[in-house]
Design a binder for these strands. Sequence first.
DNA 1: TCCTTATGTACAA
DNA 2: TGTACCTAAGGAC
Length: 268
Amino acid sequence: MPEGHTIHRLAKDYAAAFSGTAPRVTSPQGKFSDAAALLDGGVLHGTDAHGKHLFLGFAGSWIHIHLGLFGKVDFGGTPAPPPTDTVRLRLANSTSYVDLRGPTTCALITDGEKHAIHGRLGPDPLREDADPQAAFRRISRSRTTIAALLMDQKVVAGVGNVYRAEVLFRHGIDPYRAGKDLTSAEWDAIWADLVALMREGVRLNRIDTVRPEHTPEAMGRPPRVDDHGGEVYVYRRANLPCHICGSGIRTADLAARNLFWCPGCQRS
DNA sequence: TCCTTATGTACAA
DNA sequence: TGTACCTAAGGAC
């Protein structure tokens, strides 16, 4: 689940259920018990998200959450069921509960530490304060592939393996092209597309990247939903025919992640 | 019941 | 570049 759109959606959902209330804060699994005891009964004043980092605001401190590859969050109404022994953090008030499992990070941090995290992250297409030119300055100076640069959170924050593969497909760009060979106009178009795709991702809580004219329905094929919840052009479609040109979708290891692209549609 | 895999990151060598 | 970390689902036996 967790690319940037998931985290921004979680920030909204945590705020809707708990902002302005003083939830019970517990750590059934135990790894966050000391901090939970400090926060228990304090008011959650708001939430924030930058890239894949989620922040829950309490007086004088923040809970910093990063889901990593496995982290999951589940919301529910009262009465909350007994927590299972993998729940790292539970918030519960008179109407809702939310459980966090398997995060890479769940830590209590100061304002200053939060500020430092923002400082090391690149612009986030889902944040109003984002400066896409800051990303282009790094990209246009780099010999690294555009596929790797899009996954580098210091360059752009919030893009993960699905949006990376899909946005490069939508712009017909070979994932192995060097960042320095990307034109300013190409970057502007990619950025605008990421903003639109990721906003839609927050709204629908899933990743859909296929244009209306390319859906199976529009192309006279049987309806199909990919097993990650949305509909995509190339992500995890290795060896299947491209929706547009019919070429077999290719896959390769790039920086320990699976890269997917269409050799017919992404030639340069 | 075991093995693989996953939309991620950090750190060691 | 490799490895460690965190969890759960699905598939092979």
